[in-house]
Design a protein around this nucleic acid. Structure first.
Lengths: 190, 190, 190, 190
DNA sequence: GGCTAATCGAGACGGTACGTCTGGTCTTGCG
DNA sequence: CGCAAGACCAGACGTACCGTCTCGATTAGCC
């Protein structure tokens, strides 16, 4: 009478299989059949619960954590140094093999399924905007930065730069980080 | 001794078919068999000359012109206005259906075949860097901008922003263009 | 746990398609893709169950009946007349369009896949050997034929002759039947 | 005015390539492209002079000698011994690797191109009929055999038996040779 | 010694079928 | 009802040959 509930074990197996698969193949080489085999789950179970490969990855990432989202850099009085440290840390988390794979997967998903892509990007960008926003607000109150500084535009520039670097597989060197921070910072400095 | 030379007609048919296909389907939905049928060319002829679908698109773009690469905005004495006009035009050329399709295709290619992707991005970015570079140089000599302005970093920011906007399918509104130009410009203004 | 069982309908469709195809084309012109289309079955379903075109034909024949194998001629007291009647009937069943097509297909299969060919030939020859064997045994007990008559050698001669005639597409005329029976019969008559 | 004559060298190269190919692959695995490559001849040269793969093999065989056609067994006073010796020799020439390959190729050709097949079989069978015919005629004049012996029917039986054995890849053992000769011989002995 | 016309090599071309792979749907019975 | 198992239809993949079609570059004789 009471239907059997969805198997949490099967769900986790599939998400784990997706994470594992992305570590060793490109996103496009990941196959639903392969995931099913790796997760020891039937194909039907996957199709029953997820509408697409992208959705599986989305769920895996939302659950397991997005790269670059968890960097936590303490505030110091030096705005430029903070931005540099934070941007470096974020770049680094995108530069290892898994980070690049995930970033590329995100990009491909976004290019092919804009709806899901936007949602994932929002999730990814939100903590970045938040961090930049609060750090800039602090700088404003400290008088380091003009009061009308557009923190959102700044954050967007960081996100765009990081995304572009990840796409090209071109890790952000210290010089690039410096140059980016310099340009953006001068744009708002008091 | 001397074989029949490669058929230029067949080559053009394939490139045209790729351009046409991209106008109506997503890049991933484009099929080599479909191209062959559309171009009235045998599959083998395609495989003989191109190693991958990405290579066909690459050649089609290199030959037919990349979106955003051909914007030519005349220089006026107003640096900010010039940058706004130019960035708006570039955004627009990426915003129509074909532009978005091509941009997304480029992104997917880059994510799956970094080598080719880098080359294509270089081709795409080069005229942008050049335009920004020469306009900024002009501004420097006019004294509008500090002498140590990092034109390359500025150009990279524009490219990254345009790429990110195209990826998200989020056309750049005038407000965004203004905000971007403002931030970047203030970073270098004298 | 328990997979969907093999579709008997699909299996029969494929065998029927093979029989139909052989009626209108030569065996070598029969195509797996054509069979799949005709049977309204996917190629994969064919490849899942049969290793080769020859195997499909083999199964179709084993199931549907081999030509020449089903001739049933009643025994009369006249050995020569019985052999003539039987050999004529067998020749006739190999002489119509389908019979020739099947015989040639069998020959091509045997020439290209000896293992399967031998098995099919064995199936084809067995009832012939049996019929000839029992009729000759009867003749022996009636004293018409010497006791050491080698029925197997006689049967082999019939089979070889029929096969050779089918190969050449040269139907066995009454004269050839008579001549063959005469020669073979005199070799064993008492 | 006078065109360049056909290159005998190219012609021989192709025939040699066909003979060589048959020694290592099955007839159906021999490709025109392979022959052209092996013979260092262009495909067009082959298509210019031969209408089909079968025609090449036909010409190669007619020129190079058919297996079983060249057995020459001296006549002795013992008819049975002569037939046994001759049939053994013919079987042997069909039993080595090349013989089997050629015999099977002949069979496949005959099954797929009856016209050419008949012609080749005629060429192959003619010396056999001749040899059997003259030996039987000698036996008739020696009084060993009834005057109305049908030498052609006998010869056909030998040919059919040899063909069937070659098809099955079943070499004719001494026992089979003995059994065949016994049955056929008793059919005509005086 | 040139002229000329078919032959030759090389291999591109439009096709067709191959056998494989994956996608997404369906049909089983077990738990 | 969820699930594993896997058969099913569909259709693209990249490869192999087919037989036809250009291309020069040779070669014969005959002028």
């Amino acid at each position: 009478m009471v239907p059997r509930p969805r198997s949490e074990k099967a769900r986790q197996s599939v998400l784990d299989a997706m994470r594992a698969a992305l570590s060793s193949h490109a996103y496009e080489a990941v196959t639903i059949e392969g995931l099913a085999a790796e997760a020891e789950v039937s194909k039907q179970t996957i199709y029953r619960w997820w509408p697409s490969k992208a959705a599986i990855l989305g769920e895996a990432l939302l659950e397991g954590g997005l790269p670059g989202a968890d960097v936590a850099v303490p505030f110091t009085p030096d705005l430029a140094a903070d931005l540099r440290a934070w941007f470096s840390a974020m770049s680094a988390s995108l530069a290892d093999a898994d980070g690049v794979a995930i970033a590329r997967a995100l990009i491909v998903i976004t290019a092919s399924d804009p709806e899901l892509g936007l949602a994932l990007n929002e999730k990814l960008a939100a903590p970045i905007r938040e961090w930049v926003g609060s750090r800039v607000a602090l700088a404003v109150s400290a008088g380091d930065v003009r009061a009308d500084a557009d923190a959102a535009a700044i954050a967007d520039q960081f996100v765009a730069m990081a995304s572009y670097a990840a796409l090209l597989g071109r890790p952000l060197s210290d010089e690039r980080v410096d140059a980016t921070v310099s340009v953006l910072l001068r744009g708002i400095s008091a």
